[in-house]
Design a protein around this nucleic acid. Structure first.
Lengths: 342, 342
DNA sequence: CTTAGCACTCATTGAATGAAAGTGCTAACA
DNA sequence: TGTTAGCACTTTCATTCAATGAGTGCTAAG
């Protein structure tokens, strides 16, 4: 375990590196952070911290920079949370005060706000359909047996897709099915409906075609949408002044499927979650950090939002921001959701 | 007007610069393009071309590079169209052969294909709603007088938005209106419907509330969606190795509204359109070129697709690609559209 | 245990240098 | 008169070299 002095020095190094982006030397620590110690003493301490894996050297004659372990300790034990300023809070609230026309607009704007206030890249993973409540279905028959299926969730999210059927169903029959679905299944979790249909598909043999159609309607495999805001912010930070590096980062950010996967893994935990560098368990973004939180509708976790940026990130600020935003979005979505009264 | 020799030299310079990205000297031209002229003669000619504004110097002792005017002349009069290879055509067709689940998926994929085959950034401006045919409307009443309005166009495009009404309409009344709209207005151009409503709003005084609701339902101001594919490709090209520059380009590409505007301006003309550098009439992308074409549904122009990249662009290839893709998308969308039989 | 002092190590910077590439001009040539 | 060879001049680019300076590790004294 680290003694008080080492903690103080580690904290000074991490903090200084986060704010300045240049490796921190013993002299700097001695001068800036009134520890009443000489540079030499601090040097000894820093050497110890390096030995225990909290700090590294870029090269022999440079100052120290934190390792993933160093950042982790800082985030867990050393940093104090930097609350948002009143202005920032007002600014955020203002963004959500105007009329909302579409749910996906909320996601889009949230990712923008996250990036704007953090100067990193904002992420919003749209509500997971599996976890959503079924509200309403519309079927519009197109030609050639194609059916346009439009599903509306309890939170007002609208998803549509085209279903191809072999046999053209008469319009009245389609209407019947539709009415049945809307009357019987409304306000049930989509997951439950899906399971129910799977079960029926195993048992039923008579109205098989209908159940297969139902199955298609309620199957939405992995089309979870990810909204990214402020990708360019990546370029603002000195660690990516090297083009080759930032190129690979951009490539990773283009791969929404990849990011969505990493994000959805963090969905389970309570509160704000921080993943530092290699902790993301994903090679392509191993030089980045992720700060995420779950947003909820009526207390049920449905999606994830957060920020992605360099490992050298202002964690204290970002954690507060992400926390606040998750609560904000939860409130907005819950307000909009009409299942409140159920 | 340029004589034959000058044309040949201009063409050689532009072509060589497009393929190599390094300023072209007289020696290079003499060697590579069997013009049977000495470097000195070519130098004289190039000096003339510079005087007439087709070429410039980055600095005194560098080779020549084309100006916007030079590129323009090349595109209009000198280049020969490079048709797509059979493999490329097959590859494109393959992309559209699998099942299509959503219309916006077509847009998304098209932008990807455009970027993949050109190594520049692909653009697709979604079908303009004004120019679309109305097919079907759904209204789902949420709580607090909110109505979720879902509009389906003839091409299967689904747009949704939430409408806030002061007075809560009884469900039956809403159903009546809905039926009326779907029975009477189906297959009419949205633009015509919009005009009709505007007229009624001026005349009618009795059922004013209803007409105002109708107006809200059919008003979709400027939410034209722009799909971008392969933004990172910008970084591949040497002219953007400078970070500051590529940053401003990325910023411009983030501004979808701006791009959408530039694109929609090109919608009018027939065939493939090329805008070079300043011709885009937009400061932020004055170092880029745009190659666009209109795609159609049943022969009616509805949207624009194309490519954006550095001025030093392989116009001959890109023009062919954009042309082919526009035809491809037109075919796919027309096939999908069910107004064929009307 | 703390600190001053010192030798040592690298990264960074800036100046100097020398190709390389290319031009413009002049004068000779066909 | 148009074309070409030759040459002086520019400018960029890569390389080398030394100076600079920030920072370390170690040792010995306080």
């Amino acid at each position: 375990m680290l003694n008080e002095r080492k903690k103080k020095i580690l904290r000074a190094v991490v903090y200084n590196y986060i704010t300045t982006a240049i490796p921190v030397g013993s002299r700097t620590v001695a001068k800036k952070y009134r520890l009443h110690l000489s540079p030499a003493t601090i040097r000894n301490c820093m050497a110890d911290l390096e030995e225990s894996g909290y700090l590294t050297h870029p090269h022999t004659s440079a100052g120290r920079i934190p390792t993933d372990k160093g950042y982790r300790f800082y985030v867990n034990s050393l940093m104090e949370r930097a609350d948002l300023s009143l202005e920032e809070k007002i600014r955020i609230k203002k963004e959500y005060s105007h009329r909302i026309n579409r749910i996906d607009q909320i996601m889009e704007e949230t990712s923008q706000v996250l990036s704007l206030l953090s100067h990193y890249t904002g992420l919003v993973l749209a509500p997971n359909l599996e976890k959503s409540i079924f509200h309403h279905l519309e079927l519009v028959s197109l030609e050639n047996g194609r059916i346009l299926s439009i599903l509306i969730t309890g939170s007002g999210l609208v998803k549509n897709k085209i279903i191809e059927t072999e046999k053209i169903l008469p319009k009245e029959r389609l209407g019947e099915i539709l009415n049945l679905i809307n009357d019987r299944l409304s306000n049930l979790p989509l997951k439950r409906i899906k399971e129910f249909i799977s079960d029926q598909l195993k048992i039923e043999t008579s109205a098989r075609k209908i159940w297969e159609l139902m199955n298609q309607i309620f199957t939405w495999d992995g089309v979870e949408e990810l909204y990214l805001g402020g990708r360019i912010n990546i370029l603002e930070h000195p660690e990516f002044k090297d083009l080759a590096r930032s190129k690979s980062i951009f490539q990773a950010l283009e791969e929404k499927r990849l990011l969505a996967e990493v994000l959805s893994k963090t969905a389970s935990s309570e509160g704000v979650r921080v993943l530092i560098g290699k902790e993301t368990r994903c090679r392509k973004i191993r030089d980045l950090s992720l700060v995420t939180s779950t947003y909820r509708i009526n207390g049920r976790p449905v999606g994830v939002l957060g920020i992605i940026g360099p490992r050298r990130m202002e964690y204290s600020k970002v954690v507060s921001l992400v926390d606040f935003m998750a609560k904000m979005v939860s409130k907005v979505l819950t307000n909009l959701s009409h299942t409140t009264k159920v």
